[in-house]
Amino acid sequence: MHSVRRRTAEEKEEKRIAEKAHIDKFCKLSETVMALRNNEELTKEALKTAGTLLEMNFEFYTVWNFRREIIQRLSEENSDSDALYKEELQFIQNAIMANPKSYWAWFHRKWIISRMSQPSYTKEIFLCNQLLEKDTRNFHCWGYRRWICQKMGAGEQEIFDFTTKKIEHLFSNYSAWHERSRILSTYPAQQLKGLLQSELEYVQNAFFTSPDDQSAWFYYRWLIAKFIENSTEEEASQLLETQFEPLDQLIEVEPNSRWPLNTKLYLLSKMNGRGEEMKEILVKLREVDPTHQKYPELNS
């Protein structure tokens, strides 16, 4: 149970009375649906009854299984299965709108799409984009969108541009930064290296705008590590040297912000002979951020 405020004794009693009819209905309906299933009633009528039950509890996974059994049977009996599937997509859409974090509902949608002869992938993308407007971090929705993109053969550039759009809307959209890193990871080393300069500027812009938000900083660390991985030692140290100026600027404006400081620590740890500076930063860091006392950079 998440984010349900505690109730007083009075509220508990009110809730108990209010819920009694609801519970009775749910229990009766559960019995009915289980009986239908035991009797292998794989009919449209049973599909409807199972739907009413799921609407009371979308997490009742056995009922989702029953729905699939019915749909399998009905699609064998009917020539126009796509009409059946479209109705099911509508049912799932309602389920997802009511409960956007239900693993079972999202999986069922994939299962239906996989069975359709001509699914409308653009409609699916549209639905995902709509949901990501409401909750921009829903990883179920991001995952489903990724799956659809793969099915429809969407280009990497298209997905990359989508992350740009999401990030510009909200710099702290970690899900979008993640997706961006995923796309870049598929590029060959040389292509990635070529993109690096513009990408570094892009992410600097983000952390300048909201320096206390973690998302861009994690991405920045990764970019630096990637570059070092694919460069000679000389290239790497040249790049690292250029990174301090913007960071120092930020530290001057926001002296109590922890991320510019811990990022500077990270950069210094990638260079030789900067131990003294690291110690200085560490003292400051522990001051502005008493919760975090240990840093991986100290291990090396």
């Binding site: 995952g143 993640h178 890193s181 990871s185 994690f218």
Partner: peptide, 14 residues
């Protein structure tokens, strides 16, 4: 993933 974490399938967020 890029952040060292793991997701539910390849490519899924940590």
């Amino acid at each position: 993933n890029f952040d060292g974490g793991f997701g539910c399938v390849p490519g899924a967020e940590s």
